[in-house]
Simulated scan of single mutants.
Amino acid sequence: MAASSPPRLSHRQGPDRRASAGFSLIEMLVALAIVGVASSLIVLTARPADPARVEFQRLIQTAEVTAERARISGTPAGLRLSADRYEPVIWQAGDWQAVPRQARSFPGGLTLAWTEARPARRSLEAADPDVPQIIFDPLGHTREAQLSLSAGSTRHTLTVTAEGIHVDGPRR
């Protein structure tokens, strides 16, 4: 006895399977429109990144990397500061050398200020513009200093001590 194949239905018999398989073009367009409106609402309501906070995080990261570089290499490293920029430097061949491609300028409206707990007493340091304001000593003799990044009425503060870097929250 030969195996018989199942009977075939013509396209006129039974329900049209193509109409019920998948989504119609209109359904797809409606779904895309809903997703588009929802995503645009999310984008419009999201707060933009606070430039002061972003720059402050970069300053913290640069200070931590510079302090770690001093500790690992066994040679002093530091941060050369001005009101509108900073750059990490390292002690090499008897002079302070800027770390290549690491200088950072602040966007408009941001200002950096710093104070030392015990200001340097040597006039040589005060007279030489190449000496960094913050020096990370690999032997643990780092002088305490406080850095403040201000944007309008908001101020972010970072304290450098021999024990490490301490971050204070933003103040208004």
Rank of each mutant, 00 (worst) to 15 (best):
G74R: 00
R85I: 02
V30T: 15
A38D: 13
D16T: 11
R17W: 08
Q13T: 12
F23T: 06
P15W: 09
A19N: 05
G74S: 02
G74T: 01
A83D: 04
L59A: 06
R80K: 12
G14D: 07
A77D: 04
S82H: 04
A77I: 07
L29F: 10
R85A: 15
G36Q: 06
V37C: 08
G78I: 01
R58S: 03
R69L: 13
L79K: 02
I26N: 02
G22F: 04
T75H: 13
E27M: 02
R69I: 02
G78D: 05
L41F: 11
V65H: 11
P15L: 14
D50C: 06
L25Q: 06
A46I: 04
T62P: 03
G14A: 14
R69D: 14
A67M: 11
E64M: 15
S24E: 02
A70N: 06
Q57Y: 04
A19V: 12
Q61Y: 10
S39H: 08
A33R: 06
A63M: 07
R58Q: 14
Q57K: 07
P76N: 12
R53C: 01
D50P: 02
P88F: 10
Q13R: 13
A21W: 06
Q61A: 15
A70D: 02
A52I: 03
L81H: 09
S39F: 00
M28F: 08
L25W: 02
G14F: 07
G78Y: 00
F56T: 00
S40T: 13
L29K: 02
A21P: 00
E64Q: 15
V89D: 03
M28G: 15
Q13K: 12
Q61T: 13
P88M: 09
I90M: 11
G36W: 01
F23G: 05
T75W: 08
L29G: 14
S82R: 12
I42V: 15
S40V: 05
A70E: 04
P51I: 10
L44G: 03
R69F: 11
I90C: 01
L25H: 03
G78W: 01
R69H: 11
T75F: 09
V65G: 04
L25C: 01
G36Y: 02
L25F: 10
V30R: 09
W91S: 01
